[in-house]
């Protein structure tokens, strides 16, 4: 927040209007509009090929826009001078663990700091501070190839913070990690959020999105399907609770139709979306359950599958 005045404090960190990205005849991002507020954690969710990565690549200046407008930290990213200013003030965690394998952990951070014109002594101080943050201060000289996937991810996260960014951009930060590593990353991200850093994150883990995101959008085929706070989206699109019935019989289907209840029929399984949980559950489980019947809280995953469908992608 160095060279921005008081008036811009309220302006969104990211403002996308009718943003479009096309590769030849294929449209990856199809005119989406959204804004990210200062200090919030904003999620972009969607199945593979939904346009998540294409969207954030435009935000950090990797891909030129095919249409629409995009302002990041108040700067127009289609203007090269302004884009350079943006690039100084964002931290990006890409999908690949693209660390320099020949260099140690500490050197990786120091070299990266030099790209941001951080002077050497300051770079070393920041790198050591960040190593503490990711709990790797005792392994500063470890060569990168000796690290596990989870540790590499933590180093990539630390590297993205070396310029003390105003906006942190994370492209699927925990894909391919074991649960322990994933929780490690989540704790770090929650710590950063508490410090007031704005975060933009793509993921296809709904648990991750519910836990971290203040607001999110779900995308598919380059378009935004819904936008909102995770809890609101769940209430709106999946209700409070879900009754899952295995091997449902025809009587149950008739019953649901007669009562005009919302449900999804997956053949061998039936999902009933409900708000008056106990009564309906007693009724369904008592009269129509042959094989198994569970009552659970609705999650973001229910919303996601409901909106983007259940068929396989790619």
């Amino acid at each position: 927040m160095k060279d921005i005045g008081q008036s811009t404090m309220m302006e969104p960190v990211i403002q996308a209007d009718a943003l479009r990205k096309a590769f030849g005849a294929f449209t990856a991002v199809d005119g989406i509009s959204f804004s990210v507020r200062r200090g919030e954690c904003f999620g972009i969710l969607g199945p593979n090929g939904a346009g998540k990565t294409s969207t954030i690549r435009m935000i950090y200046g990797f891909s030129p826009l095919s249409g629409g407008s995009l302002h990041v930290l108040g700067q127009d990213v289609t203007n090269r001078k302004q884009l350079r200013r943006v690039k100084y003030r964002i931290g990006v965690c890409q999908q690949d663990n693209n660390l320099d394998p020949e260099l140690s952990i500490l050197q990786n951070l120091e070299v990266f700091a030099s790209y941001f014109d951080v002077p050497r002594p300051e770079a070393t101080a920041r790198a050591l501070e960040l190593l503490k943050f990711i709990a790797l201060e005792n392994r500063r000289d470890t060569p990168i190839p000796e690290l596990s996937g989870g540790l590499m991810r933590r180093v990539v996260l630390a590297r993205a913070l070396i310029n003390e960014p105003d906006l942190l951009i994370l492209d699927e930060p925990t894909t391919g990690l074991d649960p322990q590593s994933r929780h490690q990353i989540w704790e770090r991200l929650e710590g950063l959020r508490a410090r007031g850093i704005s975060i933009l994150l793509t993921t296809h883990y709904m648990e991750e999105a519910s836990r971290l995101c203040d607001r999110l959008i779900i995308m598919d085929h380059g378009k935004i399907l819904v936008e909102g706070r995770p809890q609101d989206l769940i209430r709106e699109h999946a209700g409070r609770d879900i009754i899952e019935v295995s091997e449902p019989g025809e009587e149950l289907r008739t019953f649901l139709r007669e009562r005009n209840l919302r449900y999804d029929d997956l053949g061998h399984r039936l999902l009933i979306y409900c708000d008056e949980r106990d009564q309906l559950y007693r009724e369904v489980s008592g009269r129509y359950c042959r094989d198994g019947c569970t009552l659970r809280t609705a999650t973001l995953e229910d919303v996601f599958l409901k909106l983007t469908g259940r068929e396989l992608r790619e």
């Binding site: 990797f62 350079r84 690039k87 890409q94 690949d96 693209n98 660390l99 394998p101 790209y115 590297r159």
Partner: peptide
């Protein structure tokens, strides 16, 4: 292989 350029492109470098 190392995607070093990708990482650099996410910094002020062009």
């Amino acid at each position: 292989y190392q995607k070093t350029f990708d990482a650099m492109l996410a910094t002020p470098l062009f």
